[in-house]
Design a protein around this nucleic acid. Structure first.
Lengths: 328, 328
DNA sequence: TTGTAAGCGTTATCAT
DNA sequence: ATGATAACGCTTACAA
């Protein structure tokens, strides 16, 4: 059984089988082809029966386009991007589109390189490229249909989340339970999302009340390093730029005998499940699965442009790392 | 600047530019091509200067191979597989091969489906398919060059890790610090690696001393659920089937006021960094980056077959969740 | 060493 | 409605 490891079936085989021309077969097999219903049926039956599968390379060459999409992510080890990859891929599969993946290992130069080298091989890009400069990114994409995820770049379709509002929710929650000294541990310099969260923070907190610690290149280590400065500054609560930063903070503070949330409240960002295995973390959930699916839809079903941009809502999830401000 | 949104540069353009024939250009650009050093240099310079990039579709059609590889993973949200994806991708890029990724969401039927639908589009597969049956997998792959990662299937090149030895190391470590009642929390039924770890456990522990808890479909929840049974059985130490299972256990035991490692020692499996953000976990490291790189190398540089199979060593990493057995 | 020419499987144009 | 033919860009005998 199955042993039919034979040479691949082509439209020529079908044509010969049916005594018609390859072009007719091609027409019968393609969407808008003009053929008699009878012929179409016969061709489809024969194709089915012979086990014909269209040769994408040949079709690509003829059409000048590939049936695939390039996904650029900075680091698959980061669960945030692993989830984006998962959902990009699953949505693309529904739309019969292959996903060609490139992990740039957080190197801005690599981001541009892989884009350039894939540009001709794919129909478009879903891009998570937090590091490279706007203009360099624009130049590298060079007109290729693209959707930028989790970052806003002029002239592109961008699927982002309302981080400013997420920050507002976090701070409102902390204030409601009595906190006044609320710090912010920021992310890597030059990242769009780091800037947005900071903007949200500055919108909510008076200049004289601000405690900003950062930038921090590494999430967990940045959190660890921030702990002492946080205490020195007299903060009773902190919003970090992502969940791993919050975990770093939590780990160091616990070592310093600081009780969470009795002595200090912590709000993370992203809402990753994996971050809560250690400790139920209050966090601002950032929709990433939904962003990925929308990105694919925009890329494959529209001519993606600035008009397709979407800002998705964020949502504070209160768990066990926030509580009333210490009374003192 | 950059505005060269022109038609793609082909070898014909280079040929015309240099006043030579396209075939010479092709030869100069390909590995084993026979050309005079001078010509080769000139061609490479011109290619560089004109911004030539080879058209994969055309090359695929001519060569009959795709310069692409299919990567099948059960779940990208699982850091173990996210890391495999990352390294598969990075190694493939070095070898100028595209990676088409498919996340099967732990569905055995999906594993077979995506393999069948990608089979013609790629040169081969790197397969992480812990769930589907051996024969169904074999049938779906149907002779396509394939390397199976982290599972052993007859007739295929398999890159696995020595889980039996990892288990031996874990138990030896625990015994050396006085433990006698050592339990094992197992993984999902039907998974190759679950069976291997159990086999290692049974090799080391006398039947009358065995405490096996499982199978557990979900890692973290399985760990949580195992906690009480573990205590009831009088275990002083436990080896879990992966790190998240250990974390689930840790979380529940901590809630039960059990001190780790004073009252109970825990050894995880996999050695994930992300698992140790919460608490430095003693764990058996399973090489996954290396497995991924080897899989790609075997796939692209050999005709992969059973003779290419490799068993990689595992390595116990002692951290903070194991300690001397309680004296009493 | 280099050029010529055929062919990979598909789609599109143009006749018929 | 269908068939012949060219074209997509590349590789590779084969010829020179």
């Amino acid at each position: 059984m199955s042993g039919t490891r034979a040479a691949r079936v082509t439209i020529h085989d079908i044509a010969r089988e049916l005594g018609i021309s390859p072009s007719t077969v091609s027409r019968a097999l393609s969407e808008g082809g003009v053929v008699s219903p009878a012929t179409r049926q016969a061709v489809q039956d024969a194709a089915q029966q012979l086990g014909y599968e269209t040769n994408r390379a040949a079709r690509s060459m003829s059409l000048g386009r590939m049936h695939g999409l390039g996904l650029i992510v900075p680091d698959l080890r980061d669960p945030f991007f692993a989830e984006i990859a998962k959902d990009t891929q699953s949505r693309a599969r529904v739309l019969d589109t292959a996903v060609y993946i490139a992990d740039t290992d957080r190197d801005p130069a690599a981001e541009l390189d892989v884009i350039r080298s894939m540009r001709r091989e794919v129909d478009g890009f879903v891009v998570c490229a937090p590091r490279s400069a706007d203009d360099a990114l624009t130049a590298a994409l060079d007109g290729a249909p693209s959707v930028i995820v989790h970052r806003s770049v002029d002239g592109f379709a961008c699927i982002t989340a309302d981080l400013v509002d997420g920050m507002r929710q976090a701070i409102a929650h902390l204030r409601a339970i009595g906190h006044r000294r609320i710090a912010h541990v920021t992310g890597p310099a030059g990242s769009w999302s780091t800037a947005e969260r900071l903007r949200g923070y500055e919108l909510e907190v008076e200049p004289r009340d601000r405690i900003v610690i950062g930038p921090n290149a590494d999430a967990f280590e940045g959190g660890v390093a921030a702990a002492e400065r946080l205490l020195a500054a007299g903060a009773t609560a902190v919003v970090t730029y992502n969940d791993f930063s919050a975990l770093g903070l939590l780990s160091r503070l616990t070592a310093l005998q600081v009780r969470i949330p009795q002595d200090l409240s912590i709000v993370g960002f992203d809402g990753l499940d994996v971050a809560s295995v250690a400790r139920p973390l209050t966090s601002v959930d950032v929709p990433r699965a939904r962003a990925a699916r929308m990105a694919v839809d925009v890329l494959l079903r529209e001519a993606p442009g600035p008009q397709s941009s979407v800002v998705l809502p964020t949502q504070l999830i209160v768990r066990a790392t926030t509580g009333p401000a210490p009374s003192q």
